[in-house]
C-alpha cells in the first residue's frame, strides 16, 4: 500500500547509480597505473595490492588516517558532552532568551565554513593550537554542537516528564538522575547524535586543511599530494579514497537500525 508501481525497478536503478562510481574507485585502486592509463578495463586484469601496501607502509600516508580519526573522536566526545545538559534544558524549561539562543545555535550549523576559515586560522594560531587535532576538533564544534543539541532535544522530549519527577521524589540528585536514568533512556539518541557528529566531522575538509600544516594533517589533505611532476598517481589516489570510505561504512553498519529515525533527527 505505501509503495508505488515499478518500485523494485526504481530502487534497483537508484542503488546501481549510487554504487557505480564507488565500484569504479575500488576497481581502480586494484590496478597498476600502467593498466589505468593504457587500457579501459571493467575489472582489474592484473590485480595488485601495491597501492594499498604503499599507504600502510609509508608513515606520511597512514598518519593521515590517525590524525583524522583523532580529531573526529575528540570532536564527537566534546559535542555530546556539552550538548546533553543543554538538550535537557531546552526540552524541559523555558528561560530568558531560550528561543533566540536555539535559533542562534542553529544558525551556526548553517554558517559557511569558508567564512570561518581565515578567522579560525588567526584564532588558533594565537592560542598555540594551530596544527594540533584540538584545533580541528574545536573548530568542528561550531556545526556539530548545534546539531547534537537539536537531535538530543528531540529524543529528550520523547521521555515523559513524570520520569524526572518520580526520580526526584525518590531522592535522586540531579547529576545522579542524569547519569543513571536519563542517559540510559536516550541511549539510542546519543548513538544517533554521535553518528552525525562523526559523519560531519569526518567529511569536512576546508577547516581541517586550513588549521593544520604538518603534524596533524588529515588524510583528505594528504590525498592532494598524489599530483606530482610525473603526473597523477591514480591507483594510489583511488586506494586512499577507498580507505576513507571504510570507517564510514563500518559506522553505518552499526547504526543501521536507527538510521531512518536518526535522519529525521528524532522528531517524526
Amino acid at each position: 500500500m505505501h509503495s508505488i508501481p515499478g518500485r523494485r525497478l526504481i530502487i534497483s536503478l537508484f542503488l546501481i547509480f549510487l554504487l557505480l562510481p564507488i565500484y569504479w574507485l575500488v576497481n581502480m585502486s586494484f590496478k597498476t597505473n600502467a593498466e589505468i592509463v593504457t587500457t579501459m578495463t571493467l575489472w582489474p586484469h592484473q590485480p595488485t595490492l601495491e597501492n594499498y601496501k604503499r599507504i600502510f607502509t609509508d608513515e606520511s600516508w597512514y598518519s593521515g588516517y590517525i590524525n583524522s580519526l583523532t580529531y573526529v573522536l575528540i570532536n564527537t566526545v566534546i559535542s555530546i558532552a556539552v550538548a546533553l545538559p543543554a538538550a535537557y534544558g531546552f526540552s524541559r524549561y523555558r528561560f530568558l532568551g531560550d528561543k533566540h539562543l536555539f535559533f542562534w545555535l542553529l544558525s551556526n550549523r548553517m554558517a559557511p565554513a569558508a567564512v570561518f576559515a581565515l578567522p579560525f586560522f588567526n584564532l588558533y594560531s594565537a592560542i598555540n593550537l594551530f596544527d594540533t587535532p584540538w584545533a580541528v576538533a574545536l573548530a568542528h564544534c561550531i556545526f556539530n554542537v548545534p546539531l547534537a543539541v537539536w537531535i538530543l532535544e528531540g529524543f529528550v522530549s520523547g521521555v515523559p516528564r513524570e520520569i524526572d519527577e518520580t526520580a526526584f521524589l525518590d531522592g535522586y540528585s540531579f547529576p545522579r538522575f542524569f547519569v543513571k536514568i536519563l542517559v540510559p533512556l536516550i541511549a539510542s539518541g546519543i548513538g544517533v547524535a554521535a553518528f552525525f557528529c562523526f559523519m560531519f566531522s569526518w567529511v569536512e575538509l576546508l577547516l581541517a586543511r586550513t588549521l593544520t600544516s604538518v603534524n596533524a594533517k588529515p588524510i583528505s589533505a594528504i590525498m592532494t599530494r598524489t599530483v606530482s611532476a610525473a603526473g597523477m598517481d591514480w591507483g594510489l589516489l583511488a586506494a586512499a579514497g577507498v580507505l576513507t570510505i571504510i570507517p564510514g561504512a563500518l559506522v553505518i553498519w552499526f547504526v543501521r537500525n536507527y538510521i531512518a529515525r536518526g535522519f529525521a533527527l528524532g522528531r517524526v
Binding site: I11, L19, V203, T244, I245, P247, A260
Partner: peptide, 15 residues
Amino acid sequence: CLVILALPLLIPWNV
C-alpha cells in the same frame, strides 16, 4: 538499501 543509501553521505567531500 538503507546502508547503501547512507554510504555516499559518509564519504569525505573531497573524496
